[in-house]
Amino acid sequence: MTLFFQQWRSELLKLFVRRRTYIGFVAFLALEVVIWLLFKFLNGEKRLAWFISRQGQSFEKYDSALTLAFILIGLSVLLLGAIYVSLVGGDIVAKENEDGHYRLLLVRPVSRVRLLGIKYLSCTLYTIVLIQFITWTAFLLGLLLKGWGGGFFLFTLDPPLMEFFDWREGLYRFFLSTLLASCSMTVISSIAFFLSCFPIKPAAATIGALTYFLIDRVVRETGFMEGYDQFLLTKHISSWVLTLKANIPWPVILRSLTVIVAVNASLFILGASFFQTRDLKS
């Protein structure tokens, strides 16, 4: 086990010492600031005030760090989340092959499955860390601008949901939901990782994963799979939003999480099985 952690530490060193790993973090930080500026200067606050007061609630109470952070997270993850997560997933196996690193790594007495296991864990960890980074920076930005306390108002389209929480409950729901969002997003990095195990360019693995994600989403939006949408991954990915319902539907959430874990495991096993049989030669 110690050896496994030693090897994992080396993999994380490779991942986090690279400048390009941080592009995602910087991009999200910049995006959050841009979204906040647009929200402020394109009358976002006024519209939000109008919307909240129509529900018979006080805007002053719900104009808080949590409400702002949720808006920032929702938009940034929607715009860039899948791209950065699949970028790392697509890179992690295929880029090493493209750069010829396996000729150094795999002449060592280590099995390919173990090496892939370490890589998969690293890209899963990256996904979770990235989403948590977005969460915390959005929350800190909210605290900086709105201060501590107030309420938590949220509004989502997928699934359609509108809720009001007080500060304490809001904090719990906010961090619980983003934790689940981090776990759900691992399925996108898993698709990219799976494609990355085949002899293709890293960009192709990234684009492949994004394409799958978008097609899945479009099919779901069109209602073509109505009644069968449990077969669509985006349905399970968006289950994290359900933790923001007044009464949390835990069985539905657990079912979605189980599907995500099962899909992740299947993609890893399939990718590793193919990689195991590949001839690695320039």
Partner: peptide, 20 residues
Amino acid sequence: HFYDYLTGWQNLRVLCSLSG
């Protein structure tokens, strides 16, 4: 092909970790 963004020492560390 070594990891260009790592030092020679770090490269050896990464490779040796695979041999435990």
